[in-house]
Design a protein around this nucleic acid. Structure first.
Lengths: 109, 109
DNA sequence: AACAATGCTTCTATTTTCGTAGCACAACAA
DNA sequence: TTGTTGTGCTACGAAAATAGAAGCATTGTT
């Protein structure tokens, strides 16, 4: 259970940002939330949006993100909670940074 | 090798932000960079800052982050590259969000 | 009744991560 | 010269996380 004020991997302090890093540092969590930005998605919809994550892992993540109150389930499927949506807003500028990163690295596909 | 414009887990598009998520979604990467915000750290210094990550994993991460040009090695130890420092600046507002998150969740240690 | 879609669970296999130990090199001290 | 200390790592077995495929129960539709 990864929540703020709880000790997490590599930090017993429970400092909120560390809990966040521990949560986001688990594969798919960030991506899952990102895919929910534009609105609700079903379990299978999310799965395919993420390129076929295995359902067992995804289910675990969905539970974890629900406990952390970052997503909620509605009759439309899974959605960001208001809190989760705010987090995604904070992350939005990363799109710009990532483009710059790509161009400065100059990687060819 | 996780770089922008390269296909990554769950996305063959090579869209920069996906590469970023794949990179940051690997354990310790985000935390390692975060610990470098305030200046250079030695290998072992970084290791203990992160609560004793195993050196083999950490070494792998350091290589990965170097390839991605987010960190560099100086005689002072490992440091953020200008690009990496910019990323951390973008992430800085998360501190505020995380506090709010903690208070709204109301978790007791 | 048959079909399709949804939200999962279960299983095994592979990959990642952890944790400890230790090596090779450099700087310094005795 | 011989320690000792600090550094950046590598090696290796064990544990945990992730992947991938299959399938089940429920709901709704035809």
């Amino acid at each position: 259970m990864v929540l703020p004020n709880k000790p997490v991997r590599g930090s017993t302090s429970g400092v909120p940002i560390m809990a966040l890093f521990d949560l986001l540092g688990q594969r798919w969590n960030l991506r899952l939330m990102w895919e929910l930005r534009q609105g609700p998605k079903t379990f299978r919809g999310l799965q395919s949006a993420c390129g076929g994550v295995s359902p067992s892992v995804m289910n675990g993540r969905l539970k974890m993100l629900s406990e952390a109150k970052l997503i909620v389930q509605s009759d439309q499927g899974y959605t960001l909670s208001p809190l989760g949506a705010e987090l995604m807003d904070e992350l939005d500028p990363l799109r710009g940074w990532a483009k710059k990163w790509a161009s400065e690295i100059g990687t060819k596909a």
